[in-house]
Design a protein around this nucleic acid. Structure first.
Lengths: 155, 155
DNA sequence: ATAATTCACTTGCAATTTGCAAGTGAATAT
DNA sequence: ATATTCACTTGCAAATTGCAAGTGAATTAT
Protein backbone atom coordinates (compact mmCIF):
# COMPACT_ATOMS: atom_id res chain seq x y z
CA UNK A 1 0.00 0.00 0.00
CA UNK A 2 2.96 2.27 0.48
CA UNK A 3 4.56 3.98 -2.42
CA UNK A 4 8.29 3.69 -2.66
CA UNK A 5 8.69 7.33 -3.56
CA UNK A 6 7.39 10.14 -1.40
CA UNK A 7 4.56 11.77 -3.26
CA UNK A 8 4.91 15.17 -1.59
CA UNK A 9 5.71 16.85 1.71
CA UNK A 10 2.16 18.01 2.25
CA UNK A 11 0.97 17.10 5.75
CA UNK A 12 -2.16 15.40 4.48
CA UNK A 13 -0.02 13.28 2.22
CA UNK A 14 2.35 12.44 5.07
CA UNK A 15 -0.60 11.27 7.13
CA UNK A 16 -1.92 9.17 4.25
CA UNK A 17 1.45 7.55 3.72
CA UNK A 18 1.67 6.71 7.41
CA UNK A 19 -1.80 5.28 8.05
CA UNK A 20 -3.85 6.03 4.95
CA UNK A 21 -4.58 2.54 3.73
CA UNK A 22 -7.80 0.63 4.14
CA UNK A 23 -6.84 -1.11 7.37
CA UNK A 24 -4.42 0.87 9.54
CA UNK A 25 -7.02 3.10 11.14
CA UNK A 26 -9.15 0.08 11.95
CA UNK A 27 -6.23 -1.38 13.87
CA UNK A 28 -5.79 1.89 15.73
CA UNK A 29 -9.53 1.99 16.38
CA UNK A 30 -9.35 -1.52 17.83
CA UNK A 31 -6.70 -0.33 20.26
CA UNK A 32 -8.38 2.93 21.27
CA UNK A 33 -12.01 1.81 21.30
CA UNK A 34 -11.76 -1.86 22.15
CA UNK A 35 -8.48 -2.28 23.98
CA UNK A 36 -7.05 -4.86 21.59
CA UNK A 37 -3.34 -5.56 21.82
CA UNK A 38 -2.33 -8.74 20.05
CA UNK A 39 -2.18 -10.03 16.51
CA UNK A 40 -4.93 -12.53 17.17
CA UNK A 41 -7.23 -9.90 18.60
CA UNK A 42 -6.74 -7.65 15.57
CA UNK A 43 -7.34 -10.59 13.26
CA UNK A 44 -10.71 -11.05 14.93
CA UNK A 45 -12.03 -7.64 13.90
CA UNK A 46 -15.51 -7.51 12.46
CA UNK A 47 -14.22 -6.33 9.11
CA UNK A 48 -12.16 -9.46 8.55
CA UNK A 49 -8.66 -8.43 7.69
CA UNK A 50 -6.50 -11.06 6.00
CA UNK A 51 -3.61 -12.36 8.08
CA UNK A 52 -0.88 -11.34 5.63
CA UNK A 53 -2.30 -7.84 5.29
CA UNK A 54 -2.55 -7.46 9.06
CA UNK A 55 1.05 -8.53 9.36
CA UNK A 56 2.23 -5.99 6.79
CA UNK A 57 0.17 -3.15 8.30
CA UNK A 58 1.40 -3.82 11.83
CA UNK A 59 5.03 -3.76 10.77
CA UNK A 60 4.46 -0.62 8.72
CA UNK A 61 2.93 1.14 11.72
CA UNK A 62 5.78 -0.03 13.94
CA UNK A 63 8.35 1.15 11.39
CA UNK A 64 6.68 4.53 11.20
CA UNK A 65 6.68 4.99 14.95
CA UNK A 66 2.93 4.82 15.47
CA UNK A 67 3.03 1.50 17.34
CA UNK A 68 5.56 -0.30 19.49
CA UNK A 69 5.80 -4.06 19.69
CA UNK A 70 6.86 -5.64 22.97
CA UNK A 71 7.03 -9.25 24.04
CA UNK A 72 4.19 -10.52 26.20
CA UNK A 73 5.61 -11.40 29.63
CA UNK A 74 3.15 -14.20 30.24
CA UNK A 75 3.14 -15.88 26.86
CA UNK A 76 6.26 -15.92 24.75
CA UNK A 77 4.32 -16.64 21.58
CA UNK A 78 2.56 -13.30 21.76
CA UNK A 79 3.53 -9.70 21.30
CA UNK A 80 1.79 -6.65 22.64
CA UNK A 81 1.21 -3.76 20.25
CA UNK A 82 0.71 -0.32 21.82
CA UNK A 83 0.40 3.23 20.61
CA UNK A 84 3.50 5.39 20.92
CA UNK A 85 3.18 9.09 21.79
CA UNK A 86 2.98 9.73 18.05
CA UNK A 87 0.23 7.15 17.88
CA UNK A 88 -1.61 8.58 20.87
CA UNK A 89 -1.51 11.94 19.08
CA UNK A 90 -3.79 10.41 16.46
CA UNK A 91 -6.67 10.08 18.89
CA UNK A 92 -8.18 13.54 18.21
CA UNK A 93 -8.22 12.84 14.48
CA UNK A 94 -9.73 9.41 15.02
CA UNK A 95 -12.42 10.91 17.21
CA UNK A 96 -13.20 13.64 14.69
CA UNK A 97 -13.52 10.97 12.04
CA UNK A 98 -15.84 8.96 14.28
CA UNK A 99 -17.84 12.04 15.12
CA UNK A 100 -18.29 12.85 11.46
CA UNK A 101 -19.41 9.32 10.65
CA UNK A 102 -21.71 9.10 13.64
CA UNK A 103 -23.47 12.26 12.47
CA UNK A 104 -23.55 11.27 8.80
CA UNK A 105 -24.13 7.53 8.67
CA UNK A 106 -27.83 6.77 9.06
CA UNK A 107 -26.97 3.12 9.84
CA UNK A 108 -24.28 3.79 12.38
CA UNK A 109 -24.03 1.58 15.46
CA UNK A 110 -22.19 4.38 17.23
CA UNK A 111 -23.72 5.74 20.46
CA UNK A 112 -24.71 9.22 19.29
CA UNK A 113 -25.38 10.74 22.69
CA UNK A 114 -22.07 9.55 24.07
CA UNK A 115 -20.21 10.86 21.04
CA UNK A 116 -21.83 14.26 21.41
CA UNK A 117 -21.04 14.25 25.11
CA UNK A 118 -17.39 13.72 24.25
CA UNK A 119 -17.35 16.68 21.86
CA UNK A 120 -19.28 18.86 24.28
CA UNK A 121 -16.48 18.29 26.79
CA UNK A 122 -13.74 18.08 24.29
CA UNK A 123 -10.64 19.16 26.21
CA UNK A 124 -11.38 17.16 29.31
CA UNK A 125 -12.58 14.08 27.46
CA UNK A 126 -9.75 13.96 24.95
CA UNK A 127 -7.27 14.16 27.78
CA UNK A 128 -9.05 11.42 29.71
CA UNK A 129 -9.17 9.17 26.66
CA UNK A 130 -5.50 9.70 25.91
CA UNK A 131 -4.44 8.93 29.47
CA UNK A 132 -6.66 5.89 29.60
CA UNK A 133 -5.29 4.45 26.37
CA UNK A 134 -1.74 5.34 27.34
CA UNK A 135 -2.03 3.25 30.48
CA UNK A 136 -3.41 0.26 28.61
CA UNK A 137 -7.12 1.01 28.88
CA UNK A 138 -9.64 1.77 26.17
CA UNK A 139 -12.77 3.77 25.47
CA UNK A 140 -15.33 0.98 25.83
CA UNK A 141 -13.78 -2.22 27.14
CA UNK A 142 -12.07 -3.19 30.37
CA UNK A 143 -12.38 -2.47 34.03
CA UNK A 144 -10.83 0.98 33.79
CA UNK A 145 -12.21 1.99 30.42
CA UNK A 146 -13.39 5.56 29.85
CA UNK A 147 -17.05 4.61 29.99
CA UNK A 148 -16.56 2.97 33.39
CA UNK A 149 -14.71 5.96 34.71
CA UNK A 150 -17.54 8.23 33.62
CA UNK A 151 -20.67 6.34 34.49
CA UNK A 152 -19.93 3.89 37.21
CA UNK A 153 -20.33 5.42 40.66
CA UNK A 154 -17.27 5.46 42.89
CA UNK A 155 -17.02 2.73 45.58
CA UNK B 1 -11.41 1.06 -4.20
CA UNK B 2 -14.84 0.54 -2.69
CA UNK B 3 -15.87 -2.85 -1.56
CA UNK B 4 -19.21 -4.10 -2.82
CA UNK B 5 -20.23 -5.37 0.62
CA UNK B 6 -20.28 -3.14 3.70
CA UNK B 7 -17.57 -4.34 6.02
CA UNK B 8 -19.26 -3.11 9.21
CA UNK B 9 -21.34 -0.30 10.63
CA UNK B 10 -18.51 1.06 12.73
CA UNK B 11 -18.13 4.82 12.22
CA UNK B 12 -14.44 4.55 11.45
CA UNK B 13 -15.24 2.00 8.80
CA UNK B 14 -17.99 4.19 7.36
CA UNK B 15 -15.51 7.04 7.07
CA UNK B 16 -12.95 4.79 5.39
CA UNK B 17 -15.49 3.53 2.90
CA UNK B 18 -16.49 7.09 2.06
CA UNK B 19 -13.09 8.73 1.65
CA UNK B 20 -10.53 6.24 2.92
CA UNK B 21 -8.60 5.54 -0.24
CA UNK B 22 -5.24 6.96 -1.20
CA UNK B 23 -6.57 9.96 -3.10
CA UNK B 24 -9.93 11.22 -1.85
CA UNK B 25 -8.55 13.27 1.02
CA UNK B 26 -6.01 14.86 -1.29
CA UNK B 27 -8.87 16.05 -3.48
CA UNK B 28 -10.64 17.45 -0.43
CA UNK B 29 -7.39 19.06 0.70
CA UNK B 30 -7.03 20.69 -2.73
CA UNK B 31 -10.46 22.23 -2.28
CA UNK B 32 -10.03 23.37 1.33
CA UNK B 33 -6.40 24.46 1.25
CA UNK B 34 -5.90 25.52 -2.34
CA UNK B 35 -9.34 26.44 -3.65
CA UNK B 36 -9.32 23.98 -6.52
CA UNK B 37 -12.64 23.30 -8.21
CA UNK B 38 -12.25 21.60 -11.58
CA UNK B 39 -11.07 18.27 -12.89
CA UNK B 40 -8.07 19.85 -14.55
CA UNK B 41 -7.02 21.59 -11.35
CA UNK B 42 -7.21 18.36 -9.35
CA UNK B 43 -5.24 16.55 -12.03
CA UNK B 44 -2.48 19.09 -11.52
CA UNK B 45 -1.86 18.15 -7.90
CA UNK B 46 1.72 17.68 -6.82
CA UNK B 47 1.15 14.00 -6.06
CA UNK B 48 0.23 13.19 -9.65
CA UNK B 49 -3.06 11.36 -9.64
CA UNK B 50 -3.91 9.39 -12.78
CA UNK B 51 -6.81 10.73 -14.80
CA UNK B 52 -8.90 7.56 -14.59
CA UNK B 53 -8.43 7.33 -10.83
CA UNK B 54 -9.35 10.98 -10.39
CA UNK B 55 -12.46 10.41 -12.40
CA UNK B 56 -13.51 7.42 -10.31
CA UNK B 57 -12.79 9.16 -6.99
CA UNK B 58 -14.72 12.28 -7.95
CA UNK B 59 -17.78 10.30 -8.89
CA UNK B 60 -17.52 8.22 -5.73
CA UNK B 61 -17.39 11.37 -3.61
CA UNK B 62 -20.33 12.84 -5.49
CA UNK B 63 -22.31 9.60 -5.08
CA UNK B 64 -21.61 9.58 -1.37
CA UNK B 65 -22.75 13.15 -0.91
CA UNK B 66 -19.38 14.67 -0.02
CA UNK B 67 -19.12 16.71 -3.23
CA UNK B 68 -21.61 18.26 -5.61
CA UNK B 69 -20.89 18.70 -9.29
CA UNK B 70 -22.36 21.70 -11.07
CA UNK B 71 -21.88 22.98 -14.60
CA UNK B 72 -19.53 25.92 -15.01
CA UNK B 73 -21.58 28.91 -16.23
CA UNK B 74 -18.74 30.39 -18.24
CA UNK B 75 -17.35 27.27 -19.87
CA UNK B 76 -19.65 24.41 -20.77
CA UNK B 77 -16.78 21.94 -20.96
CA UNK B 78 -16.06 22.33 -17.27
CA UNK B 79 -17.78 21.34 -14.07
CA UNK B 80 -17.32 22.81 -10.65
CA UNK B 81 -16.88 20.43 -7.74
CA UNK B 82 -17.75 21.77 -4.30
CA UNK B 83 -18.07 20.39 -0.81
CA UNK B 84 -21.59 19.70 0.41
CA UNK B 85 -22.49 20.31 4.07
CA UNK B 86 -21.44 16.72 4.70
CA UNK B 87 -18.16 17.48 2.99
CA UNK B 88 -17.66 20.73 4.89
CA UNK B 89 -18.15 18.70 8.07
CA UNK B 90 -14.92 16.90 7.21
CA UNK B 91 -12.83 20.04 7.72
CA UNK B 92 -12.17 19.47 11.45
CA UNK B 93 -10.91 15.97 10.76
CA UNK B 94 -8.77 17.19 7.88
CA UNK B 95 -7.28 19.88 10.08
CA UNK B 96 -6.57 17.42 12.90
CA UNK B 97 -4.84 15.20 10.39
CA UNK B 98 -2.80 18.12 9.11
CA UNK B 99 -1.97 19.20 12.63
CA UNK B 100 -0.77 15.73 13.52
CA UNK B 101 1.41 15.53 10.44
CA UNK B 102 2.77 19.04 10.86
CA UNK B 103 3.90 18.10 14.37
CA UNK B 104 5.23 14.69 13.41
CA UNK B 105 6.79 15.03 9.98
CA UNK B 106 10.29 16.46 10.25
CA UNK B 107 10.26 17.28 6.52
CA UNK B 108 6.87 18.96 6.45
CA UNK B 109 6.38 22.03 4.30
CA UNK B 110 3.46 23.02 6.48
CA UNK B 111 3.61 26.41 8.26
CA UNK B 112 3.93 25.24 11.86
CA UNK B 113 3.22 28.57 13.52
CA UNK B 114 0.10 29.13 11.48
CA UNK B 115 -1.12 25.61 12.20
CA UNK B 116 -0.63 26.10 15.92
CA UNK B 117 -2.38 29.45 15.70
CA UNK B 118 -5.37 27.70 14.20
CA UNK B 119 -5.53 25.16 17.02
CA UNK B 120 -4.98 27.81 19.66
CA UNK B 121 -8.12 29.54 18.37
CA UNK B 122 -9.89 26.41 17.38
CA UNK B 123 -13.57 27.34 17.59
CA UNK B 124 -13.24 30.68 15.90
CA UNK B 125 -10.80 29.49 13.25
CA UNK B 126 -12.68 26.33 12.32
CA UNK B 127 -15.81 28.38 11.87
CA UNK B 128 -13.98 30.93 9.74
CA UNK B 129 -12.43 28.23 7.59
CA UNK B 130 -15.74 26.50 7.08
CA UNK B 131 -17.52 29.70 6.09
CA UNK B 132 -14.70 30.68 3.78
CA UNK B 133 -14.70 27.33 1.98
CA UNK B 134 -18.48 27.25 1.88
CA UNK B 135 -18.55 30.54 -0.04
CA UNK B 136 -15.95 29.32 -2.54
CA UNK B 137 -12.80 30.52 -0.80
CA UNK B 138 -9.91 28.51 0.60
CA UNK B 139 -7.36 28.50 3.36
CA UNK B 140 -4.37 29.75 1.39
CA UNK B 141 -5.33 30.87 -2.08
CA UNK B 142 -7.54 33.63 -3.46
CA UNK B 143 -8.45 37.17 -2.64
CA UNK B 144 -10.72 36.22 0.25
CA UNK B 145 -8.78 33.26 1.58
CA UNK B 146 -8.46 32.71 5.30
CA UNK B 147 -4.86 33.89 5.39
CA UNK B 148 -5.83 37.19 3.73
CA UNK B 149 -8.69 37.71 6.12
CA UNK B 150 -6.37 37.22 9.05
CA UNK B 151 -3.20 39.01 8.11
CA UNK B 152 -3.97 41.64 5.57
CA UNK B 153 -4.88 44.96 7.19
CA UNK B 154 -8.31 46.34 6.44
CA UNK B 155 -8.56 49.16 3.84
C1' DA C 1 6.86 -37.11 28.49
C1' DT C 2 4.25 -36.88 24.44
C1' DA C 3 0.71 -35.19 21.76
C1' DA C 4 -2.52 -31.81 20.48
C1' DT C 5 -3.53 -27.06 20.22
C1' DT C 6 -2.65 -22.19 20.02
C1' DC C 7 -0.31 -18.35 18.35
C1' DA C 8 1.94 -15.23 15.17
C1' DC C 9 3.08 -15.16 11.39
C1' DT C 10 4.53 -16.72 5.91
C1' DT C 11 3.79 -18.58 1.27
C1' DG C 12 1.61 -19.36 -3.20
C1' DC C 13 -1.52 -17.95 -6.24
C1' DA C 14 -5.91 -15.88 -8.20
C1' DA C 15 -8.53 -11.80 -8.44
C1' DT C 16 -8.96 -7.06 -8.04
C1' DT C 17 -7.11 -2.50 -8.28
C1' DT C 18 -3.87 0.84 -9.84
C1' DG C 19 -1.35 3.56 -13.00
C1' DC C 20 0.38 4.79 -17.40
C1' DA C 21 -0.29 6.05 -22.28
C1' DA C 22 -3.11 6.91 -25.74
C1' DG C 23 -7.50 7.99 -27.27
C1' DT C 24 -12.46 10.57 -27.80
C1' DG C 25 -15.80 14.04 -28.45
C1' DA C 26 -17.71 18.36 -27.17
C1' DA C 27 -16.73 23.34 -26.31
C1' DT C 28 -13.83 27.24 -26.80
C1' DA C 29 -10.12 30.05 -28.69
C1' DT C 30 -7.63 31.62 -32.94
C1' DA D 1 -12.33 26.66 -40.47
C1' DT D 2 -8.71 24.88 -37.52
C1' DA D 3 -6.39 24.11 -33.61
C1' DT D 4 -6.50 23.64 -28.83
C1' DT D 5 -8.46 22.80 -24.39
C1' DC D 6 -11.17 20.23 -21.36
C1' DA D 7 -13.15 16.29 -19.02
C1' DC D 8 -13.17 12.36 -19.30
C1' DT D 9 -12.63 6.84 -21.25
C1' DT D 10 -10.13 2.74 -22.86
C1' DG D 11 -6.63 -0.88 -23.03
C1' DC D 12 -3.25 -3.11 -20.86
C1' DA D 13 0.81 -4.04 -17.71
C1' DA D 14 2.22 -3.89 -13.03
C1' DA D 15 1.28 -3.77 -8.27
C1' DT D 16 -1.67 -4.86 -4.47
C1' DT D 17 -5.07 -7.52 -2.13
C1' DG D 18 -7.23 -11.47 -0.32
C1' DC D 19 -7.91 -16.28 0.32
C1' DA D 20 -6.36 -20.88 1.68
C1' DA D 21 -3.02 -23.54 3.24
C1' DG D 22 1.17 -23.94 5.49
C1' DT D 23 5.22 -23.35 9.35
C1' DG D 24 7.59 -23.41 13.61
C1' DA D 25 7.85 -22.07 18.32
C1' DA D 26 5.39 -21.92 22.82
C1' DT D 27 1.77 -23.54 25.66
C1' DT D 28 -1.76 -26.75 27.30
C1' DA D 29 -3.80 -31.30 27.80
C1' DT D 30 -3.20 -36.24 28.52
Amino acid sequence: MKKPRLRSNCPVNFALETFGDTWSLLIIRDIVFWGKKTYGEFLDSKEGIASNILSSRLSHLVQNGVLIKKPDKNDKRKSIYQLTEKGLDLIPMLLEMSGWATRNDPETTSPKDFVEYIFANREKMFKLIRETVKTGGSLFVGKDCVVSKLFKSSP
